[in-house]
C-alpha cells in the first residue's frame, strides 16, 4: 500500500524559495509530449492524397474535433480554437492511457497536472470572453440576474475550475487505487489486467473526452 503515499519529489532552493518538483509526473509528462511530437511528425512528414495509416488517424481526430468546435463556437472562432481542443484531447488521452504500460504511471494521477489544465481552460475561456464581448459586457455578466449575485457568480466560476480538475484526478486516482487494492487481494492473479484495461483505456478515454468537451463548453458560455 505504500505506493499510494509515496510521491518522488525533488526539492530545490532557489533564491530563498523552496521549489518542489514531482519528478515522476514531470518525466511521464515529457514522455507523453515526446510521443505526441513523434506522432505529429510521422503524420505530416509524407502527407499524401492516399494517406498512410498514421495520417488517417490524425485526419480523423482533427476532423472530429473541428466539427465539435464549429458546433459550439461557430465557423470563425472554430479555426482558432480547434487546434487547442484537439491537442488537449490527444494529450489527456495519452496521459490516461500511459498507466497501461508497466512501470509508467499516469501524469493525470497528480492533482497538479489536472489543476494546471483546468486553470489553463479557465484563463482561455475568460480571455476569449473579454476579447469577443468587450470588457464592460463581460463584467455585466457577473451582475446577472440581480446585482448582489456577483460574489456568488464569481465563486461559481471558480468552482468550475475545481470541479473540472478534481473530476479527472478523482477518476484516474480512483482507478489506480482500485487496481492496487484488488491486485493486493488476489495476489496479482488473473483480475488486474482486465481492471487495468477497464480503468486505463475505457474510463481514461471517457474522462479525457469529458474534460475536453467541458473546456469547450466553458469557452462557448463565455463567448456567447
Amino acid at each position: 500500500m505504500e505506493e499510494l503515499t509515496n510521491v518522488p519529489q525533488l526539492t530545490m532552493q532557489i533564491s530563498g524559495f523552496n521549489l518542489v518538483f514531482n519528478t515522476q509526473t514531470i518525466i511521464m509528462t515529457w514522455i507523453v509530449m515526446a510521443a505526441l511530437v513523434i506522432f505529429g511528425f510521422l503524420a505530416t512528414r509524407r502527407a499524401r492524397l492516399i494517406p498512410n495509416p498514421i495520417q488517417v488517424v490524425a485526419e480523423m481526430l482533427i476532423g472530429i474535433f473541428y466539427g465539435f468546435t464549429r458546433d459550439a463556437l461557430g465557423e470563425d472562432l472554430a479555426k482558432k480554437y480547434s487546434p487547442l481542443i484537439c491537442s488537449l484531447f490527444m494529450f489527456l488521452l495519452l496521459c490516461n492511457w500511459l498507466g497501461v504500460i508497466p512501470k509508467l504511471t499516469e501524469p493525470t494521477k497528480d492533482l497538479n497536472t489536472t489543476l494546471g489544465l483546468g486553470i489553463l481552460g479557465f484563463i482561455i475561456a475568460h480571455y476569449s470572453g473579454i476579447k469577443v464581448k468587450g470588457f464592460s459586457d463581460y463584467i455585466k455578466e457577473y451582475f446577472q440576474p440581480i446585482f448582489f449575485m456577483a460574489p456568488l457568480n464569481i465563486i461559481g466560476e471558480l468552482a468550475k475550475v475545481v470541479s473540472i480538475s478534481f473530476r479527472l484526478y478523482g477518476n484516474i486516482m480512483g482507478g489506480a487505487i482500485i487496481i492496487l487494492v484488488v491486485s493486493h487481494l488476489v495476489y496479482s492473479l488473473i483480475l488486474p489486467p482486465f481492471l487495468v484495461f477497464f480503468f486505463g483505456l475505457f474510463v481514461g478515454s471517457i474522462q479525457a473526452f469529458v474534460f475536453t468537451m467541458l473546456t469547450l463548453v466553458y469557452i462557448s458560455l463565455q463567448v456567447k
Binding site: R167, G170, N171, M173, G174, G175, I177, I178, V203
Partner: peptide, 8 residues
C-alpha cells in the same frame, strides 16, 4: 465515478 470518489 461518484462511488469511485467515495472509495478513494
Amino acid at each position: 465515478s461518484a462511488a469511485i470518489f467515495s472509495l478513494i
